[in-house]
């Protein structure tokens, strides 16, 4: 299947690891992804003027029109903004988690299992709320971890807020919130958002913080993925 791809700004810089992982995993599952030509920033959560914010993503949809129908976008903020801008449901705006199904896992071929390892899938906010733009299956990562033999922990942490959004505003807010997540979780934290990664990583001490793509690549046998 051919997907359009909207990486967003972070994935071209500080979250390039997430970008690389997504590309590898989709390639392994037999999908092709092509970037929306000359895409622009989605505005994240930085614009108070609702129309201005939505217009960023409308521009991106314009650039995708005629090229793609289904657009994959890994960053939760990008994903929400793009999905909200598609008011007429003309496109399929998809988070990578939305394509995790039986056939996907058959394609990807398992090389390792997660036996003896504990993981907390930390979805954070934007993948789960508001519900109009939430991912399809809100326990998909738990199911994936169990499927490959790992232990799932941290149910009470999974949908709390890490405060990542405040890290460059008032980091004491982020610190307090991230510490709550760290306390309420166990094992390796599996995250989906570049900002969650940074917030938790800043305060996690010895605890491991990884992207969900790292976990999948590990299962697929990639060297150095975890």
């Amino acid at each position: 299947m051919e997907y359009g791809y909207y990486p967003g700004c972070s994935l071209t810089g500080s979250a390039r690891k997430l970008d690389k992982g997504i590309r590898q995993i989709f390639a392994r599952a037999g999908h092709t992804m092509k970037e929306i030509p000359d895409w622009n920033c989605c505005g994240a959560f930085e614009y108070g003027d609702r129309k201005e914010l939505v217009n960023f993503s409308k521009k991106n949809l314009e650039k995708a029109r005629g090229h793609f129908h289904d657009i994959v976008t890994p960053c939760p903020a990008c994903y929400k903004n793009l999905k909200e801008a598609d008011e007429a449901y003309e496109f399929g705006v998809i988070h990578p988690l939305d394509v995790f199904d039986e056939s996907f896992f058959q394609w990807t071929k398992q090389a390792r299992d997660l036996a003896g390892q504990v993981f907390t899938p930390y979805y954070g906010c934007i993948l789960l709320r508001p519900k109009e733009t939430a991912i399809r299956n809100k326990t998909i990562m738990e199911e994936t971890i169990v499927r490959f033999g790992g232990e799932v922990a941290g149910e009470a942490a999974k949908d709390r807020c890490c405060g990542g959004n405040q890290i460059f505003i008032d980091k004491s807010v982020t610190e307090k919130l991230s510490r709550i997540i760290l306390e309420k979780s166990r094992g390796t934290l599996v995250v989906f958002c570049p900002l969650c990664h940074m917030a938790l990583k800043t305060f996690s001490g010895e605890r491991k913080v990884i992207y969900f793509t790292d976990l999948l690549l590990y299962i697929m046998g990639e060297k150095g993925a975890l």
């Binding site: 959560f45 906010c125 934007i126 789960l128 709320r129 508001p130 519900k131 807020c161 405060g163 990542g164 959004n165 405040q166 505003i169 008032d170 807010v173 919130l177």
Partner: peptide, 19 residues
């Protein structure tokens, strides 16, 4: 106004889903 993290927990729980 200072510290809202944009987490939408309030929206998710509100009967009117006020954003």
């Amino acid at each position: 106004v200072r510290s809202c993290t944009g987490c939408y927990r309030c929206t998710g729980a509100c009967p009117w889903e006020i954003r």
